[in-house]
Amino acid sequence: MDIWAPVQSAAAIAAAGIAAVAAWQARTTATKMTAIESQRRKSELSPRLRVTCEPFNPGSDGVLRLRVALIGPPGLDRLDRLTVAVRNDHHRRGEGEFRQHMDGPTQEEIKQHVWGPYRFTPHTGPDDAQADGMGRQVVYNKSLPLGEELPYQLEHTQPGHWMRSLTQQSWLRERGPVIRLAFNAEHQDHGSWYLPCEIDTAAMPVTVQVPQQ
């Protein structure tokens, strides 16, 4: 009988355990490094957009053309989907505790209303893409190659039906000249990016680079 057999067996089990732990650590490290590299690559490929806002036609009153071009980076050949949305003056409009007063607006009406000076003209947009009925956003589901642009149409917003004391002129004066937009750019291999921007329409035409500094 080999008196060392139990010791050798225990040593073998310990060695196997150490090897298993080492293999697990190696896999974990590799997974983390892959995730880090993927995130670094995604950051490098963050889209750069050129956004231009101008009167739709000479002398047009309250109707604007918005042009959105993909201008970089060179390693990003295209976008597979681009959603453009109008942001409210405050990101929590219609959120939190709410109690309707008399014949005032419902919480859903407050959420749906566009709280800014401009919205997309409903049912307009590039190619087959169309703005929703509220003029809140346009989803472009086709490929946008590097160096190409998409045209959109904007129009003045109106005060809510419950704002009986506000005229159109008063509403727009209260809203100010700044359009707040959000771009959600997507690529099937690299993921998605959220890119907010603000455009001051006090003097047009105006062009901004996104991301903004």
Results as ranks from 00 to 15, higher is better:
D2M: 01
I3Y: 12
P6C: 09
Q8I: 04
A10F: 03
A10Y: 08
A11T: 14
A12C: 02
A19M: 12
A19G: 07
A20F: 08
V21T: 00
V21N: 05
V21I: 12
A22I: 04
W24V: 13
W24R: 07
R27D: 15
R27Q: 11
T28R: 13
T28P: 03
T29P: 01
T29K: 12
T29A: 13
K32A: 15
I36G: 01
I36F: 09
S38P: 00
S38E: 15
Q39W: 11
Q39G: 08
R41E: 13
S43Q: 10
L45H: 08
L45D: 04
S46F: 08
S46V: 14
L49N: 08
C53W: 10
P55G: 06
F56Q: 07
N57S: 14
N57P: 03
P58A: 13
G59N: 09
V63D: 06
R65V: 11
L66Q: 04
R67V: 12
R67K: 11
V68W: 00
V68N: 08
A69M: 12
A69C: 14
L70K: 05
P73V: 01
P74S: 03
G75F: 00
D77C: 05
R78K: 14
L79S: 07
D80W: 03
D80A: 05
T83D: 15
T83M: 02
V84M: 07
V86N: 04
V86H: 09
V86T: 08
R87N: 15
R87H: 14
H90Y: 15
G94L: 06
G94H: 06
E95D: 14
G96C: 05
R99P: 05
R99I: 05
H101K: 03
Q107F: 03
E109D: 10
K111C: 10
K111R: 13
K111W: 03
Q112A: 15
Q112I: 02
H113G: 01
H113N: 08
H113C: 01
V114S: 06
W115Q: 02
G116R: 02
R119V: 04
T121I: 01
T121D: 00
P122N: 06
P122L: 06
H123I: 02
G125S: 07
P126H: 10
D127P: 01
D127Y: 14
A129Y: 05
A129P: 08
Q130V: 14
G133P: 02
G133D: 04
V139A: 10
Y140E: 11
N141A: 13
K142N: 15
L144N: 09
L144Q: 07
L146Y: 02
L150N: 00
P151N: 04
E155H: 01
G160N: 09
G160H: 01
L166D: 15
L166I: 02
T167S: 15
T167G: 10
S170P: 06
W171P: 01
L172S: 10
R173A: 15
R175N: 07
G176P: 13
P177Y: 10
I179N: 00
L181C: 02
L181R: 00
L181G: 04
H187Y: 06
H187I: 04
D189A: 15
D189I: 08
G191C: 00
W193E: 11
Y194W: 12
Y194E: 13
P196A: 06
C197L: 09
C197Y: 09
E198W: 08
E198K: 05
I199Q: 12
A202K: 14
A202H: 06
M204H: 10
P205T: 06
P205H: 09
V210H: 06
Q212N: 09
